[in-house]
């Protein structure tokens, strides 16, 4: 699905890509149902997840409100309630429910939400990182040496001789997890920065400064997200080896 990046939306409007009811051909003014014939309308394929769930494109989300909206829309769209309806309506209900479920899952999780926002705003999703991020280089190198040593020693040696190595790996893990926590904090900062920018763009004309700021935040997000994934994989590996 191709998504058009917005140049900082002035306000989130609910734009359905259609304007005519598929059933009675009257102009659709209602949100999800035709006001003339009360038939359910298909959600546009271009509809982004934020719009689908009636949310502005912010990174801090009120999860309670998100859930409430999801439940309300589920009651509107779920196939259970279209059992006695026509085939066309059943097909729409199925498609809308599927889109809604995916939208909700994506936005509920902060990381998936941020990744999705990046895709919307900057075109592509995350980079897949294969080499360690610069500021983690030393730690990762040290860890890899320790891990290698442990892998070679573990099958042959007795448990007592392994203890110092184990302790070292445990402290490596501790350090990495500390870095992970730092990353979460920085991520939270970026979330706030994005939302603040969003608010500024709503109340003032979008100028070069805002545009530049937007680029910086998105770049920061992208980098942080890929570093985070990298680090998480390393820790998962470490835990697996030690188990």
């Amino acid at each position: 699905m191709e998504q058009k990046p917005t140049v900082l939306p002035k306000r989130t409007e609910l734009h359905m890509a259609r304007s005519m009811c598929w059933h009675c051909q009257s102009e659709v003014t209602g949100e999800y149902f035709c006001e003339q014939c009360v038939k359910v309308q298909p959600l546009s394929k271009e509809l982004d997840y934020f719009t689908c769930l009636g949310l502005p494109r912010l990174l801090n989300i009120d999860l309670e409100a998100l859930e409430a909206k999801f439940y309300t829309l589920s009651r509107s769209f779920h196939p259970d309630f279209y059992h006695n309806k026509t085939d066309s309506e059943q097909a729409i209900s199925l498609g809308n429910s599927a889109l809604l479920n995916i939208a909700y899952r994506t936005l509920k999780d902060p990381i998936q939400r941020a990744e999705y926002l990046l895709k919307l705003e900057a075109g592509s999703a995350k980079d897949i990182r294969t080499s360690p991020p610069a500021d983690l280089f030393e730690e990762i190198l040290a860890l890899q040496e320790d891990l290698e040593e442990y892998r070679q020693a573990a099958p042959s040696q007795n448990q007592a001789a392994l203890e110092p190595l184990k302790a070292k790996l445990a402290s490596d893990r501790e350090q990495l997890e500390q870095r992970q926590r730092e990353m979460e904090l920085r991520l939270a900062d970026l979330f706030n920065a994005w939302d603040l920018l969003h608010a500024q763009a709503e109340s003032a004309p979008v100028d070069d400064r805002l545009r530049k700021e937007r680029e910086t935040i998105l770049k920061g997000l992208r980098e942080l997200l890929s570093n985070r994934t990298y680090l998480r994989n390393i820790i998962t590996d470490l835990v697996a080896v030690m188990a």
Binding site: S74, R75, H78, D80, F81, H83, N84, N101
Partner: peptide, 16 residues
């Protein structure tokens, strides 16, 4: 109960 939801009897419950 699920059968009743499908036939439109029970309307306040929904299984996801």
């Amino acid at each position: 109960v699920q059968a009743d939801i499908l036939s439109g009897g029970t309307q306040d419950m929904l299984l996801l």
